[in-house]
Write a protein that binds this DNA or RNA. Structure first.
Lengths: 229, 229
DNA sequence: TTTTGTTATAGTCATTTTGACCACAAGATA
DNA sequence: TATCTTGTGGTCAAAATGACTATAACAAAA
């Protein structure tokens, strides 16, 4: 079974949770299976690991092959290994996640996917296997993480307004936050750099645009800083 | 290969990080391999998953068989799947961790372990495979987690002093904390219940003993509370 | 041109939390 | 009795928080 290096291991798979943020809502990238036992159903982008690739390598390959998404930062969530999670035989899957800006990527379904598109996190269809369970895990992971690390980095466009940032937090935390207080708190963290630019084409007072300062973030991250909301 | 349900899967393993806290220091439970390619070396308690058991089940079985430790809460950390992590063939391992009170457990080496004992985290020997890497991951995970959840629960004896609690935090966070401030902060969280008892056999003023209030903790945990130090 | 609607942004204020301390208490030991 | 060690109660200024109020911009409607 392990004789040919490039052969797949049919008991080890990868599944990806690709989160995006657009029009004030958290989104998830799903693919429609083109073959296999869940043909024509929407599910997490996933596939078999090959004998000669590491978990990370497999995750990047599979995500790219199925959705066209590449050059993202994938992070492992954890393994899911319940006996009955896959109906045919015992399959262990390792879940990865990423946070991206949907607009930065052309979604190109391919490989074992006949289609691929963004779904609002609040209206995800019932997926095959334990994919909904994996999503739930990912969502609570995200909810937890957003409280302690400035993950907004990857979800917002290069330049963003404070309201967009706040909406991102509200959408992940599932709460309303006070605008002036949110603004004050975030600005005091020194992570935001005001661009010399304002919002355009809005039917109200244009907001200041900001961007994240990666350097300052890295400095802070090294000292192990955290923040709460 | 998958024909006999009770057969092991020789490409899937479990490794456990069992942390303990004693005499002011963080400890880790290791076993000495009795067989295999790393015979006589100290390593994380670990073993092969069987075809008919889930990851969690395998973790409990293996930990118990090798060290005698049972009735603990094991939590999955993540999977480690680098191609070269195991010299003979490709093996994916799923790491689990637990926090326990060493005194609560009789360490009984067994199965593939010829010996088992606690090591101070600061003097862990070089271990085979990627076990040191797994430990590093576990330590930073712990460091991060201790800042946001009251994990002390499982590491301290039933009744403990505030100084013991503080030493636990200092030992995980690798810093010194101010005594009166630590005390004030922790007491205000309402998580500690004073026992009507004092420390005994100490060569100085005896400290009040406290215990955790699990109910209050659960209430707080549900609301998603966090704390910082 | 004025009004209206909508979001941006500045600021107030009482309360709570923090960090850095000091000082005394309790008890064992020299 | 003096001294040492750790426990525990407290102060105090500074900073952070949460709940608001008020004003600024500016597009669109009246």
């Amino acid at each position: 079974m392990a004789s040919f290096p490039d052969e797949i291991i049919d008991t080890l798979s990868i599944d990806c949770l690709i989160f995006g943020f657009e029009s004030g809502e958290l989104q998830l990238l799903l693919v429609k299976h083109a073959e296999g036992i869940s043909k024509d159903r929407w599910a997490l982008p996933g596939g078999w690991i090959k004998y000669n690739e590491s978990l990370d390598t497999a995750a990047y390959r599979i995500l790219r092959a199925l959705t066209g998404v590449q050059d993202v930062y994938l992070e492992q969530l954890r393994a899911f290994g319940d006996l009955d999670r896959f109906p045919v035989r015992r399959v262990l899957t390792v879940a990865y996640y990423s946070l991206v800006k949907p607009k930065d990527y052309d979604i190109i379904p391919g490989f074992t996917a006949s289609d691929a598109k963004w779904f609002k996190v609040n209206s995800i269809p019932a997926m095959p296997y334990d994919h909904n369970k994996i999503l739930d895990f990912g969502l609570s992971f995200l909810k937890n993480r957003v409280r302690h690390e400035p993950i907004g980095f990857n979800l917002l466009p290069e330049k963003f307004t404070l309201l967009q940032l706040q909406e991102l937090y509200e959408s992940i935390l599932h709460t309303k936050l006070d605008k002036p207080n949110f603004r004050r708190k975030f600005i005091k963290m020194n992570l935001l750099v005001p661009c010399n630019e304002k919002q355009k084409d809005v039917a109200h007072r244009a907001a200041q645009l900001y961007r994240f300062d990666k350097k300052i973030y890295d400095q802070l991250a090294e000292k192990g800083f955290t923040f709460e909301f």
